[in-house]
Each structure stands twice: as structure tokens, then as C-alpha cells.
Simulated scan of single mutants.
Amino acid sequence: MKKFFLLFLTLIVVDMFAFKVIMVTDVGGLGDGSFMDGTWSGIVKACEELGVEYGVIQSKEQGDYVSNLSKAAEQADVVFAVGFLMSDAFYKVAQQYPETYFVGIDFDSGTILANVMTFTFKEQEGSFLTGYLAAGMTKTGKVAIIGGIPIPPVKRYEIGFRAGVRAYNQIHNANIEVKVVYSNSFTDPKKGKELAQSLIGEGVDIIQQACGGTALGIIEAIKEENYKNVPNGDLKGLLDYMYDNIGYFMLGGDIEQEPQAPGHILASAIKRVDVASYLGVKKAYNGEWQPGNIELGLKEEGEGISRMRYTKGLVPDSLIYEIEYLTGLVKDGKLIIPSTEEELNAMRIKISF
């Protein structure tokens, strides 16, 4: 009887201190190979390190946001809302559950609540680097960016990419053209493929994605174009061909996307949503909660460019040096990357290599 009582008491104590994290996605959902998957990976990593329970609720439409966030708040200690489109629902539900921690990824209304922490990013800093890379690597003189819905984070992606191309043009007295198109969706690979094929038909050879799951169609279009000249699956043959001829590349977004299509993705503009979600879990669990917004950029290692594990050998050492030098200037505060159209129009870079 005594042993039974001790076991029962232990179970009560464990249950009292149980800790659970739930992530609620926007309509993009898991499986986008980008934004959502990156955020989820940070949550999984933190929870497994801490030995706490975690789960996910996926939203099928925007009308699900309030009910899904409320459901999560009733079950978990920490609720993550992922995606700018969830902002209104997030703050509404957070006020209704003051005892639950809420972490918002990719938005900040400026509203300060004791149970709310948000993370935003200087997307323009990561895409500036891929824009500069694209300008230095294009063989047709035409590059492009395909955005999803033109919400503020995506617009910053666009502005940063265009700023990178403009910086290359100013430094090298070049005239690389950049095209901008929007799919108006983060979940439409078919549209992504159609837009990519149209851009390729216009002479574009490098395309930056800022459209979440829609980019799966961009990858498909790029691969189909490259496989017209190289056998399917021949990575060495592909890279050899790319070295001497005009090939086609996508530039990934948010996470290091290169493994999804080795050789077809030149590099990725890294947006460390995984770092943000990892920190959110850790701060809540360790009693280091920090209400308000945390902004991550190059200086905070929240933005950057991928290591180009398959394609770095295609990039001239001089171009890699220039990108590293510019990265250092941004981290030191000596180079401010535009985040608005007005700032972009006023940008003048006087650097010589």
C-alpha cells in the first residue's frame, strides 16, 4: 500500500510539472520544405533536448486560426503561431489565455502582452546576399524573384534581393536586370512552375524563391530545363555542364534548400526561423521569458547565405570574397540594407574590389 501511494504521488507530481508545446501553422502547413518546416525543426530540436512533449495543429484555411490557437492554448504551455497571416488571430487568442505562453513567428503588431513573445527578421539582409550572388553568377544578365503573397516579410525579401543586384551593378558597373513576380499563394506549386517557365522563356537563368510551398514548382521547372542537357540524376555531369554553359538555378529561402535538388539550387537566403522557435521553447521552459519582439538579422546570426554545399565550386573565389566582405560590413553596421522602396531608390554603394 505504501509503495502504491508513493507511485501515485510521483505520477501526480510528474503530471503537475508536465510541459507541452504546440505549433499552429498557417494555411501553408508542413511539407513546404521552407518556412514552416524550418520553424518546426527548431521546436522539435528544443523539445527533444528538454524531454518535453510537442505537437502540431495544421490550419486548412484562415478561418481555422482562432479555433486552432484556442485549442492549442487549452492543451499546451507554449503555443506557436507561424506566419504573418496569423497575426490578428494570435493576439486575440493570447489575450484570452493569459496563463499560456504565446510565441509568434514572422510578425509583430507592437502590442506588448506579458505572455507574448514574437520574432521578426531582417529578411532583406539574407536576400541581399543571394541577390548579389545571382548578379555575379547569371550568364544571361537576367535574374528574378518569385514572391508568394506581398506581405511585409516577403516584400523585404524582394527589396533585399533587388538591392543585392543593384549593389553588384553599382560596384561592377554592370547592368543585370531583375524581374519581380508574385504568385499570390504560398501553397500553389503549379503556379510556381508556370511562373518559372515563363521567366526562363524571357531569358532568366536564376530565380530567387520567396513563396513557401509554391517554390516546389519552381524547383520542378528548373530541373526539367536542366535535364534537357544533362541526364537525370547525374550531379557531376550537371555541375560540369553548369561550369561552362548556361544552366538554370533556383535560390532557396528560409532554410538551406539545396538538398531538395542538389545542383539545381545555387544557394539559399537563410532565415533562421529554426533558431527563433528553438529560443522560444527554451526561454519559456527555463524561466527566461522575454515579452515583446526580438528581431534577428545578420549580426544576430538570424539571416545569412547558405554554405552552397554542392555548388560552391562554380562560384569564383573573388565573388565569394566580395559576399563575405559585404556580410562583414552589414554585421558591423557600416552597410544598411534597404527594406523599403524609398530606401532602395536612395541606395548608393561606393566600394571597389
Rank of each mutant, 00 (worst) to 15 (best):
L296I: 07
K92S: 14
E74I: 09
Q124L: 02
L7T: 13
G104L: 12
Y132T: 05
G147A: 00
E220Q: 07
E258N: 07
I146L: 14
V275I: 14
K331G: 09
N68K: 14
E343D: 08
R307S: 10
F249V: 05
I337E: 10
S352I: 06
H172C: 07
I151A: 13
K350P: 03
S34R: 12
G233A: 12
A72T: 00
I200A: 01
F161I: 15
G110A: 05
C211N: 05
A167N: 11
I105S: 11
Q209I: 06
I146G: 09
N293K: 15
G333Y: 14
L7S: 12
A261Q: 05
M242K: 15
D108A: 10
K282L: 08
N173F: 03
G233D: 10
F35K: 02
G302C: 02
K20S: 10
K71T: 11
Y54W: 02
G304A: 05
G141T: 13
G213F: 01
I219R: 01
L298R: 09
A276F: 04
I151W: 04
Y132Q: 06
K236P: 12
G292F: 10
T340M: 14
G237P: 00
D240R: 15
K193T: 02
T187I: 04
G38C: 05
N169Q: 10
Q58K: 08
P189C: 00
V66H: 13
E49Y: 05
E123H: 07
N226D: 14
C47E: 11
Y182G: 03
A276M: 13
G333K: 15
R162N: 11
V24N: 08
V273I: 08
F80D: 03
W40M: 11
M86D: 07
A269C: 11
M308C: 07
L314R: 01
D188V: 00
I320E: 12
K282A: 04
Y248C: 11
P262N: 06
T10Y: 04
L266E: 08
I159F: 04
D15I: 06
L298F: 11
A94T: 03
L113W: 01
I206C: 03
Q290W: 12
E288W: 02
R348K: 13
S127W: 09
E295H: 06
L251T: 03
G253W: 03
G63R: 15
P152T: 12
G160W: 08
L50N: 06
Q170M: 07
N173R: 06
E343I: 13
F128W: 08
Y278A: 07
P231E: 15
K92N: 08
Q257L: 02
V165D: 00
K191Y: 01
V330S: 07
K45S: 15
F186M: 10
E343K: 14
L6R: 13
E125Q: 15
I12L: 15
Y278L: 03
G136Y: 04
K122S: 11
I255N: 13
A221E: 05
F249D: 06
S127G: 02
G280T: 08
L344H: 14
A94P: 10
I145P: 00
F90N: 04
S127L: 08
F249G: 05
A144L: 06
L50P: 04
A144T: 10
F5V: 11
V275S: 04
